[in-house]
Design a protein around this nucleic acid. Structure first.
Length: 216
DNA sequence: GCATTAACCACAG
DNA sequence: CTGTGGTTAATGC
């Protein structure tokens, strides 16, 4: 469960417990769809999922990878009760759904919890601002370096990790065509920055990738 | 002009 | 899904 829920009283925790359900998703399945009614807030228990915007012609732009204990609310909670992004499972994934009305009810009476929720939400907004800058003002190698470093630093926390994302997924994460993603990754390999074997990526030259990330 | 960047397309494995 | 090569358009010396 997300650390957010540590701030609940035992009564509130019981209320949440009574109004939540766990669901198993297979890799590739859609967990929530952009534009549909938001009935619950989510917490990922196991697995990995991608959270993305459906842009022009439904073309995806990945906002972030969601990992276990991540809480997913979204800007629709207090606006239009809609999902403003789609979430699909990258691996077999279990998700805990908490009734939205119950969640809002607790927010209205538990101040520390509400503050922590806002803090969490604000952090996400700031991250999106940062991504916007990176994606609009960097060239392809810089954006791909960002994507790889993001996976290393924030998702897997180690330089060697399973190749969970297809070339196409990496392209969606770094806002470029899949062809360009293939070419940039090939260049990175040729220059010895990374190694990609079967189902694993290894970041060999962290330093150079960070330089690319910096200069764009 | 000439080079660079990056998308789009067609196509092959 | 992955990879290649050619074409095209925009932008920058």
């Amino acid at each position: 469960m997300s650390p957010l829920f540590c701030l609940l009283t035992s009564d509130e925790l019981q209320l949440v417990d009574a109004n939540k359900i766990h669901v198993q998703f297979k890799a590739g399945e859609t967990i929530r769809k952009q534009g549909t009614f938001m009935s619950h807030v989510l917490s990922v228990n196991s697995g990995l999922a991608k959270l993305y915007l459906e842009g022009i012609d439904g073309r995806p732009a990945i906002l972030r990878i969601v990992k276990p204990s991540n809480f997913i609310g979204g800007p629709g909670i207090y606006f239009d009760q809609m999902h403003h992004f789609t979430i699909t499972a990258l691996l077999d994934t279990t998700v805990c759904f908490i009734d939205l009305q119950v969640f809002k009810k607790i927010l209205s009476v538990n101040n520390p919890f509400a503050e922590e929720f806002l803090k969490d939400f604000s952090r996400e907004v700031i991250k999106v601002y940062n991504r916007l800058i990176h994606l609009t003002q960097k060239q392809m190698p810089g954006r791909m370096a960002d994507a790889l470093l993001y996976l290393q630093d924030e998702i897997f926390k180690q330089p060697k990790f399973p190749m969970i994302l297809s070339r196409n997924n990496l392209a969606e994460l770094s806002a470029m065509s899949k062809e360009s993603a293939v070419k940039v990754l090939r260049d990175f390999q040729r220059d010895g920055f990374i190694r990609i074997s079967d189902h694993e990526v290894e970041i060999i030259d962290d330093e150079s990738l960070r330089k690319f990330s910096k200069i764009g």
